[in-house]
Design a binder for these strands. Structure first.
Length: 216
DNA sequence: GCGACAG
DNA sequence: ATCTTGTCGC
């Protein structure tokens, strides 16, 4: 792998990403995540389909695949996009929007996992990470719904959002097909008492559960 | 050179 | 991400 080559690809992908506004109604959403087996190249990508805005689980899919690309900060999408595309293709219906566990535009080259996946699928995506990658920001207020902008080179690429009182905030940034403000609204509307939005939280549980079963 | 660094 | 039990606090 040639990182300079991949950097150029990221810049190209970022150009193809739309910053919204969201087009069309959202009635079905999906959440994706990947669980790994310590050290090995085994991965368990999971996708959960839920109704919107009701958030009722409609379908779950999990796969056991081999990962070929290593984890490198700034290049996560080259490791996970292939896995996520594979598991999403297993769903019986195509979601109107996908919640991703990772950054969207809050990336050095504006091409985080959510951007890459969204452009690749041609579907709107929201990035919701548990930790920051780049940008400057202040901690959001203590009340649920509080947000503070993530600034990168003078641009608001996302928001640090308080989804639960007394709990660390999440880092929300748009992937493809929507604005940063819409991304925040969607994440808050997808939370049900936990730090992470339901689609991502359930996909995480699904992937972890699959890995556990596979080992027993 | 030093520190940072999604999952 | 993963390795891991109990424990403090709302």
């Amino acid at each position: 792998m040639d990182l300079e080559e991949l950097k150029r690809l990221q810049l190209k992908l970022a150009t193809r990403a739309s910053s919204g506004p969201l087009r069309g109604p959202v009635r079905l959403v999906a959440g994706v995540d990947v669980a790994y087996v310590s050290g090995k190249n085994r991965a368990f990508p999971a996708a959960v389909l839920l109704s919107w805005p009701g958030l009722e689980v409609r379908e779950e899919q999990v796969l056991e695949l081999t990962v070929s690309f290593p984890y490198l900060p700034g290049y996560l999408s080259f490791r996970e996009v292939p896995l996520l595309v594979a598991v999403l293709s297993r769903l019986s219906r195509t979601p109107d929007l996908v919640f991703v566990d990772g950054q969207g535009r809050a990336h050095p080259r504006r091409c985080g996992l959510a951007v890459h996946l969204g452009v690749e699928l041609g579907l709107p995506t929201v990035g919701c990470a548990k930790k920051p990658l780049v940008g400057d920001f202040e901690p959001p207020g203590p009340e649920v719904g509080a947000r503070s902008p993530i600034l990168l080179e003078g641009e608001v690429v996302g928001y640090v959002v308080r989804t639960r009182t007394g709990v660390k905030p999440v880092y929300v940034s748009p992937g493809h097909g929507l604005s940063a403000d819409e991304a925040v609204d969607l994440v808050l509307a997808a939370c049900r008492g936990y730090r992470l939005p339901e689609p991502v939280r359930l996909a995480h549980l699904c992937a972890t559960r699959a890995r556990k079963c596979a080992r027993e």
